[in-house]
Amino acid sequence: MAHNRVKESCSDQAVYYLVTNRIAGGRMLFKDVEKYKFKELLFAGSAKLSYQVIDYVFMDNHFHLLIKVPPTSEMDDLELLSRYRLYRKNEEINFINSEQKDDFREQIHDISFIIGNFEQRFVQWFNREHQSWGRLFGQRFDSEMIEVSAQSDSLLRVMAYISLNPVRAGIVTDPKDFFFCGYADRLAGGSVGDCDNDFFDLFCRNIETEDEKSKRKHFREVFRAYMLGLRRYKNADSQTLAEFFREVNLSEKLAWDDLFIHKCRFFTKCLVIGSEAFVREKLAKFSGKMKWKRIHEPYTEDEWNDIYSLKPRRRSG
């Protein structure tokens, strides 16, 4: 079923998204070979479309991505044409007119097109590999717009949420030991860490250094301390289960899918994550277009250190 999505294309600033999708029925279909293919297609696609992978984790039945979509003005016409030729698999093709060129520029900066292209290519490969057919994912992917600024540590929290997936699942005790995640990738010097020196300027304000390599190193040290400080929370991405049971008046014998949906509610079942001011800004900008049946307000929990999400609530009365 189609659902609302908050997204925008900016000519002068990057936009960040947390992206999640799950296999239909919760089946555990992603083994090592599927995860390798996920990574291959994800990074290969960035040469044709306009995005950068900031973080990722590939689990047995779902994935999380943190995607940066750069400003549209950052790409000149020569680079745009190069990506168009890669996308069309034709080294001699040209744009018919300026309208087609502008449409393609917008398209490759659109999170729906970027992830839709990635998922389609993976499903086609998966069906060929396993001689299967039909849908693989249970629904359209979820996406949340993330604030990346010195006013909020939302980026760190989202990265920690992604990296701690295999820890919460009991696969490893330290995310550096899980091969299919961005944290292990960036420690190994992978391209997933190319933006880390930019994040140093936002989150390492008390550390003085001008060397780019040192900036990346210090940011990763700060992030590791931040992430491991959250590891004690078994359900750090939502209310405690006890609070949830009291709120909805249910026993603790919930079906696995109820537990799963509850666990992902704060991060993957909202639309925006950031400071209260950031969430209110996006609420004011997009609420008129969404045709919501419920009231939406910034939502947070005590342990979230002033990080808010955009969460619907029922109308009173």
Rank of each mutant, 00 (worst) to 15 (best):
A47E: 04
D257P: 02
S132W: 09
F104E: 09
K101I: 01
F63E: 11
D153P: 01
N165Q: 10
N21P: 06
T240D: 06
K7Q: 08
F95R: 12
E147V: 00
F178A: 10
D12N: 07
S73K: 03
G25K: 11
V158M: 15
I115C: 13
R128K: 14
R135F: 09
C264F: 06
G229V: 03
G26R: 12
H64E: 04
E208Y: 13
I96A: 12
F260R: 15
E34N: 14
G317F: 06
I207N: 05
Y226H: 15
L65A: 11
E212G: 03
V272A: 11
A169N: 09
E91K: 13
A150V: 09
R314W: 08
F38Y: 14
L228K: 06
Y233I: 01
R140D: 03
S152Y: 05
G193C: 10
L202H: 08
F200D: 15
M75I: 15
V172G: 03
D196C: 11
S275N: 10
Q131D: 10
N305A: 10
D177H: 08
R27P: 00
R246M: 06
Q52H: 04
A284N: 15
L42D: 02
H109T: 02
F43T: 11
A188T: 05
N249P: 00
W256E: 10
Y183F: 14
K37Y: 02
H296W: 03
R22F: 00
D306E: 15
G25H: 11
G170Y: 04
E212S: 07
I307Q: 06
I108R: 09
S143W: 01
N4T: 08
M227Y: 10
A225L: 11
W125D: 04
S132Q: 14
T268W: 05
R5T: 04
A225I: 07
H109C: 04
Y226L: 14
G45E: 05
Q124I: 06
A284T: 09
A184F: 04
D177I: 00
I93H: 06
F267S: 08
G274K: 00
C10T: 01
Y161W: 04
R265Y: 07
D32R: 09
E276K: 15
F179D: 05
W292E: 15
L86G: 14
Y226I: 14
E301K: 08
S214Q: 12
D153H: 07
V19K: 08
D77W: 01
A284E: 15
M227W: 09
K7M: 01
S82G: 10
A14D: 10
S11V: 01
L254G: 05
L271C: 03
L78E: 12
L283I: 05
N90K: 12
D306P: 00
V222M: 13
P71F: 01
N90L: 14
A242P: 02
M159E: 12
E34I: 04
E129R: 13
E147W: 01
A160L: 08
A225S: 15
E208I: 14
Q107G: 00
S238K: 02
H262Q: 14
R220W: 09
R140C: 02
K263R: 15
T173Q: 08
